[in-house]
Design a protein around this nucleic acid. Structure first.
Lengths: 139, 139
DNA sequence: TTCGGTGCAAAATGTTTGCACACAC
DNA sequence: GTGTGTGCAAACATTTTGCACCGAA
């Protein structure tokens, strides 16, 4: 429940924040600020873009959301439930596809932690390539 | 040799391009456009920032460079030789430490290629954490 | 000589911030 | 009522682009 997420993060439950979270939750893929904003516009809900950004940052800081950097450097967000995923992005059309495999970084994190003395708090793994559509066009 | 890299990519060998590549090659860590630009300034070489960006894009497109997205969404670049490394960065003091392990993404790339139809051209793996020094201070 | 490369200035993009007002608790 | 959250406009950082000139092949 979204209410619980907010309570756990000790953030007030405002219309705007709730709506933003529910859009992210119902999406199958991580969403960018702009995508969320457009979706809001489609549903004729007016929430300022700054508010979207502020909430995304806030919620990421409280670990409610996970920030994912896409191939073009823009940020997308998804609910931070422990089972997260990685994506491959096409460097020609910027489309993203889910890598539906278990996260391969988990074990690496432990090794690194031992070797370097770091407490590992997060990671970013991102593949870049050319999707099958763009491969066709290239020929 | 840088000349060979350029020839293979069928790009002209200009002073600017050569210099940019040599800076990236001699750096131990991936460099951002701004960092390259500053390094140039330090050496009193004047290359326009647009030129830096244009070359980084061009060289990435030709797979001479690998584009790496940092935690803040800015892009850094390194030479795309098969034997590359990954780093863990401390989110408090920004120090970086080499993960001296074989790159764990190689096998993943093949799996992904089969499953998604993408031609995998590169990847970025970056760990974030808190270094031992900062862990001490935190207590 | 030709076409790709460069410098410059200006724009586009994505994101953050200051301030006054509004609303959840 | 208090402090957090919001809208608005403006600033900011990074990156891209149009155009005229330049220089490597």
């Amino acid at each position: 429940m979204i209410e619980d997420l907010l309570k756990k993060a000790s953030l007030k439950n405002t219309k705007q924040r709730y709506t933003i979270l529910s859009i992210i939750e119902s999406a199958e893929e991580p969403m960018t600020a702009e995508e969320i904003f457009k979706r809001l516009a489609d549903e004729e809900i007016k929430i300022n873009l700054s508010t979207v950004y502020r909430n995304l940052n806030m919620l990421t800081g409280k670990n409610v959301l996970l920030k994912i950097l896409k191939g073009d450097g823009t940020a997308a967000y998804e609910i931070n439930n422990s089972s997260h995923s990685h994506y491959i992005t096409c460097c020609m059309c910027n489309s993203s596809v889910l890598i539906d495999d278990t996260c391969p970084v988990k074990e690496l994190s432990e090794t690194v932690s031992e070797k370097t003395g770091f407490k590992v708090t997060g990671h970013s793994l991102q593949l870049t390539g050319i999707c099958s559509e763009c491969l066709k066009k290239q020929k």
